[in-house]
């Protein structure tokens, strides 16, 4: 038995769906960020496997840029969370619906 590209793609699909479910169910903004990271990793895995299947470096380059953007996203997102939590201790994302006015 040989590990084919499809195995990686199936794993990526399952991982992406798990991340999406976590994003929809969890209320702690930090855990929601972690679920976003899960989804990003699923896509990274897909990029690398398709790149390997086609013998193209482009997949790995895309993953490189996704990594950078994910790092920037985490930095800004966590700063927003810190700024919010200073005003309201233990705020969940549902409490932030007051921002809607």
């Amino acid at each position: 038995m040989v590990v084919t590209t499809s195995w990686y793609l199936v794993l990526g699909a399952v991982l992406f769906s798990l991340g999406a479910v976590g994003l929809l169910t969890r209320r702690n903004p930090l855990v929601m960020f972690m679920c976003v990271e899960l989804m990003l990793n699923a896509v990274n895995l897909t990029f690398v496997s398709l790149g390997a299947a086609l013998g193209d470096l482009g997949g790995q380059l895309a993953v490189f840029f996704v990594l950078v953007v994910a790092a920037a996203e985490v930095v800004v997102g966590l700063a927003v969370v810190v700024a919010i939590m200073r005003r309201r201790q233990g705020a969940t994302v549902d409490d932030l619906s007051v921002l809607g006015g």
Binding site: D56, L57, G58
Partner: peptide
């Protein structure tokens, strides 16, 4: 979502259809 993605993979039995990169080959 998972069903959609897995169905897509089941339908696409031919594997990836792209052409291998010319400028940045691997392997």
């Amino acid at each position: 979502l998972m069903g959609l993605l897995l169905t897509l993979l089941l339908v696409a039995t031919g594997g990836p259809t792209g052409t291998p990169g010319q400028t940045a080959p691997l392997g």
